[in-house]
């Protein structure tokens, strides 16, 4: 039982990781993609229907868009509360995660889970446990693009 050098250790770890990868079954990727396409597509169709119906009621595109987001978020939060959204998420994976409903689910799920830890330290601090990165880097990247846009405008690229 000699002492292993750091390099040997690293090599052994890589070999073991490779071996574990070989013996570990994974979800079928094409199947997962098909499910994600189906459910993600259905959620978007639902959004489109809301847009059209709102348009028929005489709302302009912006107002109809707001109603669309609002209703989809409401639906997702409701389904999270009724413990149905996790099942959709399990089935559809990214198809249920990427649309606005997935974002709403991650926020609502955290709110429900951490409610017992109080309004401030529970819900307040932890509501964005999962959605936080999306909010932070979403805002940051929009700011960055804004700066780029501003510079290009000064340079006369945009009129």
């Amino acid at each position: 039982m000699g002492k292993m050098t750091q390099e040997e250790k690293q090599k052994k770890a890589e070999e073991y990781e490779q071996y574990v990868k070989e013996v570990t079954p994974t979800h079928s990727l094409p199947m997962n993609m098909a499910k994600a396409f189906l459910v993600g597509g259905l959620i978007c169709v639902l959004g489109q229907i809301i847009l059209h119906v709102a348009g028929n009621y005489g709302l302009d595109t912006k107002e109809a868009g707001s109603w669309c987001s609002l209703l989809l978020i409401f639906g997702s939060v409701l389904l999270t509360g009724c413990n149905i959204y996790p099942k959709i998420g399990k089935f559809a994976g990214a198809g249920a995660l990427v649309p606005i409903t997935g974002f709403a689910n991650s926020v609502a799920a955290s709110a429900i889970e951490y409610k017992k830890e109080g309004q401030v330290f529970g819900i307040g601090c932890k509501i964005f446990t999962i959605a936080g990165p999306v909010v932070l880097y979403g805002i940051f990247s929009s700011w960055l693009l804004g700066v780029v846009y501003y510079i290009l405008k000064i340079m006369g690229v945009f009129v």
Binding site: T26, G81, P86, K87, G89, K90, N105, A109
Partner: peptide, 17 residues
């Protein structure tokens, strides 16, 4: 789940392992 992973209501796929 709360200690090590996600809130229970969060919809995600668990790996087969």
């Amino acid at each position: 789940e709360k200690e090590f992973r996600f809130p229970l209501g969060y919809g995600n796929q668990r790996p087969l392992s």
